[in-house]
Nucleic acid binder design. Structure first.
Length: 357
RNA sequence: UGGGGUGUAGCCAAGCGGUAAGGCACGGGGCUUUGACUCCCGCAUGCGCAGGUCCGAAUCCUGCCACCCCAG
């Protein structure tokens, strides 16, 4: 019997993933990961409650469960990079890194040492194997698809992964959980950084990075306010600026970060400064092992949950130049550009620069 | 202290005698395994202050205060 280790978060998705695998006859082991030691601003450590849910679900399904702690690995390989990116004025995506470095590396290694043949998670995504290679496909539930977060995985990681819930939609998944009597059936979906949770972001970051206040200026250089520190803002952001009151009305958005002068450039209204026609990425990860061609058209997302954008990809020495068929709002360095061919997630890379306005 | 102008929520800003529009900001939700965007809801028993006229005043009258502009 093939053994599958299931990463269980204490949510419905991974609960049902474990249930389905058990029903399919695998030798299933549930493992809860605790990767963050600190509490939130209310002094609550949600991990304890989540592990309680994992225990209840595993008991119900009839599988053994364990808990592992990769807090050190998470800090070293994900969180420290995350902080460094913010210090560099960029907006990192920790969850993409978390998947390639923790869930599908540290955790996967652990699982295989424990005799697993596969590592399963509750991600909304699908793996399709034809011949010797595995392809990462979008989830059946387009609204919940999480392939964006998995774009950094390698062929060997994908080929050892299972996503049991990738073929169903959220509604039927909750129904299954309910019928199986799983305690997590009605549990609210979790949000926020994986393993850390929903936080008041500025306050959270301030615990780790020094706040260096400065001026907010218009593209023309007129000072219109003060900012608390460039790392607390991201391109395209509106809320938190605290400025308003022009006769014409209208919202203000973050257009750029001037690290050299510690100034936040803001624009009044949806000006062209918020838009880009192209971007450059760092080294691209190809889930299939190699790019389809040196130059090709495909669909791209430069942010999670964004509708597919038509684009042309031109590989370069260190990455790629991606040119969109229509202007893109708030292309943000640090985020991932993820490429798709139909339902197949080809891979992606970190956005280094945005081009054109 | 001669003349003119303006004072409505944190910021803009409607209103011109009939019982305080709107926008931005802010707060709370929704959406969401990053950060954002977005959507919904909320947000002045009171209109610089004090009197007066009137059934009724932010709107009219009087006085005072503050700020701005032009003269001196």
């Amino acid at each position: 019997m093939e053994r599958v280790v299931v990463g269980m978060s204490g949510g419905v998705d991974s609960s049902v993933a474990a249930l389905l695998l058990k029903e399919q006859g695998y030798d299933v082991v549930g493992v809860f990961m605790k990767n963050w030691e600190e509490q939130d601003e209310e002094g609550v450590c949600t991990a304890a409650g989540d592990y309680d849910d994992v225990r209840r679900v595993c008991d119900r399904i009839g599988i053994p469960y364990y808990s592992v702690n990769f807090a050190k690995e998470y800090w070293d390989r994900v969180f420290s990079v995350f902080l460094g990116e913010y210090e560099a004025g960029r907006t990192p995506n920790p969850d993409v890194l978390c998947n390639s470095e923790i869930k599908f590396k540290a955790f996967l290694d652990f699982a295989f040492k424990a005799g697993a043949d596969y590592l399963a998670t509750g991600h909304y995504a699908r793996v399709q194997k034809n011949g010797g290679t595995a392809r990462l496909l979008r989830a059946a539930d387009q609204n919940k698809d999480q392939t964006y977060f998995l774009a950094g995985l390698s062929q060997s990681q994908i080929s050892r992964a299972m996503f049991p819930i990738g073929g169903m939609n959220k509604q039927e998944l909750r129904q299954i959980a309910k019928e199986a009597g799983l305690s997590t059936a009605q549990k609210k979906d979790s949000t926020g950084i994986c393993f850390i949770g929903e936080r008041k972001f500025k306050q959270f970051l301030m615990q780790y990075l020094p706040a260096r206040p400065g001026d907010m200026v218009t593209p023309q250089g007129k000072v219109v306010g003060r900012h608390d520190g460039l790392m607390f803002y991201t391109l395209g952001q509106r809320r938190g600026l605290g400025i308003g009151g022009a006769p014409e009305g209208g919202r203000w958005f973050v257009a750029d970060k001037d690290l050299e002068n510690n100034r936040l450039v803001v624009t009044h209204g949806e000006t062209g400064l918020l838009y880009s026609k192209a971007l450059e990425t760092g080294a691209l990860n190809w889930i299939g092992g190699a790019p389809p061609a040196a130059s090709f058209d495909c669909a791209v997302k430069h942010r999670y949950r964004q509708p597919d954008q038509r684009a042309h990809v031109e590989l370069s020495k260190d990455g790629a130049l991606i040119t969109f068929s229509s202007r893109q709002r708030a292309v943000t360095p640090g985020q991932w550009a993820v490429l798709y061919d139909g339902d197949c997630c080809l891979g992606g890379g970190i956005i280094e620069t945005r081009i054109g306005g």
